[in-house]
């Protein structure tokens, strides 16, 4: 397949990924967007959610939280605050984080705490969802 686009994912701690892929779907702040090779230049802030890319007909999933993506016709650069490959996600940890967040939300103390708990909850849910999608796509074993 000649028609590929380069995907790079960089976080403050590491270069997570650098690969030639067929398609990238990323969680923008205004909803998910898809990128094929020769996409027009595009810059978008990212929300919390799963990014996936297609390679050799398979879908791979990566969890993202915050940051932005820069798209040029030949390259997608994702600068994420947090990024984890599906196989790195600890479901156990995400579940615990979610329980904790749920508890905090039900207590509803301060506004700041509430917003934080909501964000934590969103992160943990998206982590779990990301992992599930990867498992069902067959690119991550249980």
């Amino acid at each position: 397949m000649a028609n590929l686009i380069k995907l790079e994912i960089v976080t403050p701690d590491r270069n997570l990924l650098s690969e030639e892929v067929e398609y990238v779907g990323a969680p923008g702040v205004y909803g998910e967007f898809g990128v094929l090779p020769s996409h027009i230049p595009f810059l978008s802030a990212l929300g919390i959610g799963s990014l996936f890319y297609k390679k050799d007909g398979k879908r791979y999933y990566i969890f993202l939280a915050g940051g932005f993506a820069e798209v040029t016709p030949t390259k997608v650069t994702v600068l994420a605050e947090v990024a984890e490959k599906a196989e790195e996600i600890s479901v156990e940890r995400a579940r615990k984080a979610r329980e904790k967040a749920e508890q905090r939300i039900s207590q509803q103390q301060e506004e700041i705490d509430y917003a934080r708990a909501r964000a934590a909850m969103a992160r943990s849910m998206h982590r779990m969802r990301c992992r599930e999608s990867a498992v069902s796509a067959g690119t991550c074993s249980l």
Partner: peptide, 8 residues
């Protein structure tokens, strides 16, 4: 030449 589309 970078004429990006920005979102937001």
């Amino acid at each position: 030449p970078s004429q990006y589309i920005f979102e937001p």
